[in-house]
């Protein structure tokens, strides 16, 4: 049951898993999408609620786990990182109590943030040469809360491979860099609550006959980054598409513009960055995986984790005019579907 939950109800994993689970998954699929989803949801709920009910007996106040705000997944093709732990998105409860990490940042006078400078609309250099994007806006909000000034930040542009080493070595205080929360990373770093929900989606030129991650991919050349979730998904179910692998998701847009591929599968958050650089492409179909981005911090900086979660509480608050909604509209208007609400936070105790 635990493994089934870890695999988000499908058992279709790229990682190693008991073959029984796969058989179960196959049978689940055999029942048809709706039944499978229902079964998966039931298992998920049970797996999440049971241990938490034991761990946190106190009642009153908000429920420990809330369902995600908008679960929009393609039936019959649910896909996710092969998580092996329970509820990776759940973070420490928010608090404004200062601890040693906050004290250290205050005395340094600057927040050191690890960001991307290569990811359009998330963390990138705008034509003025300044860092800009949805992630950068969040870094500013954190700096303003802790130091009272959103400009008191030292930005460190770090490559993907350096995110965890930089946190562990204390070179950065926070990493806000489209970083997906998962169990493997939780062994090395701590995450805030989720600040964005992303999923794999299909990006095609406007007017393409491809309608999403479905049978319309048959015979078409589909591009994705090596080692990505998309690669695992297409290996498992290709719908007859011809795979083209590139080192980085942005390389897919180059191939698409040159006419070497017919479509791209990538995380919709990154796809938004691609669509923003080329108005002639669009996202089609619905996301067929679900992953959450979180602010990563040093594992021992529990005071900072709680503080960032508090910042996020405020960031999400305010309905349609919340800072989160404002930043979303500022960066993703026209390239991502209109946001209904930020993802709801999940908390754990201890």
């Amino acid at each position: 049951m635990r493994t089934v939950r870890g695999r988000r109800g499908t058992g279709e994993g790229d990682g190693p898993g008991p073959s029984g689970v796969r058989r179960l998954a196959a049978r689940l699929r055999g029942w048809g999408g709706v039944t499978a989803m229902a079964a998966a949801c039931a298992l998920t709920a049970a797996a999440v609620l049971l241990p938490l009910a034991q761990a946190a007996p106190e009642t009153g106040g908000p429920p420990a786990v809330r369902p995600p705000a908008s679960v929009q997944v393609a039936p019959d093709a649910l896909w996710g990182p092969g998580d092996t732990c329970e509820n990776p998105e759940a973070s420490l409860r928010p608090s404004t109590v200062d601890g040693p990490t906050i004290e250290r940042i205050r005395s340094a006078g600057k927040l050191v943030a690890g960001v991307d400078q290569n990811s359009f609309k998330w963390g990138y250099r705008n034509p003025d040469g300044h860092l800009d994007g949805f992630d950068i806006a969040l870094v500013k909000a954190i700096a303003k809360d802790i130091l009272g000034d959103e400009s008191k930040v030292i930005y460190r542009a770090i490559p993907t491979s350096q995110r965890i080493p930089a946190l562990q070595a204390g070179r950065v205080d926070v990493v806000v860099r489209t970083m997906t929360i998962n169990c493997k990373r939780l062994e090395d770093v701590a995450f805030s609550t989720a600040y964005f929900e992303a999923g794999q989606q299909v990006l095609v030129p406007k007017g393409s006959t491809i309608t999403g991650y479905d049978a319309s991919l048959k015979g078409r050349k589909i591009c994705f980054a090596a080692g990505s979730t998309a690669e695992a998904a297409l290996t498992s179910r290709s719908y007859g598409s011809v795979p083209v692998t590139v080192p980085n998701q942005l390389d897919c847009l180059v191939r698409l513009q040159l006419g070497e591929v017919d479509g791209i599968i990538t995380d919709n958050a990154l796809a938004a960055g691609q669509a923003a650089q080329d108005p002639s492409v669009q996202l089609v179909g619905s996301p067929f995986t679900k992953e959450f981005y979180g602010v990563a911090m040093n594992k021992d900086a529990t005071d900072l984790v709680r503080r960032v979660n508090k910042v996020l509480e405020n960031y999400r608050a305010g309905g349609n005019d919340s800072p989160w909604m404002v930043a979303y509209r500022a960066h993703f208007e026209g390239v991502l579907p209109k946001a209904v609400a930020p993802p709801e936070p999940k908390y754990r105790d201890g």
Partner: peptide, 16 residues
Amino acid sequence: ATNRQGLPLGGAYLRY
């Protein structure tokens, strides 16, 4: 051309 517009895509073209 893409780089002069400040788009990261230019870097991808250069790498290609």
